[in-house]
Amino acid sequence: MSERKIRVLVAKPGLDGHDRGAKVVARALRDAGMEVIYTGLRQTPEMIVEAALQEDVDVIGLSILSGAHMALVPRILELMQAHDLADVKLILGGIVPDEDITALQRMGVSGIFGPGSDTQAIVEHIRKVVPLE
């Protein structure tokens, strides 16, 4: 019998530059035994939620460096609600000012990881919030 695997969508919304950080996280999650669906740069909220639905992921991981999190995250959460994906956990990596952190958590973001976060912390967070059986 094949065991259940945690599936994570790693996406890079917005128009900003590189996806080095997102790739590092993707590899760390793979090395922790998870299945990572990597979608690359310049993802719109619609693309992210559509992919999350088709791939039936447990977690959506966003990498946002542009500072556009207060615009992108509410839109993604709204689309997740609309597509019956409210039980999917949303985590966020990037530069998020302290005053936004509380607001994002209140909206329903499950974890926020600043630049230079230990990837092991992300792995542990996901293992904690995703129930396996």
Partner: peptide
Amino acid sequence: TSPFSGGAVLGDRIRMRDLHG
């Protein structure tokens, strides 16, 4: 699947973005 960790990075969707929506 990686034989070492049992995990995987699945990246084929990167090339399929024209199909979204």
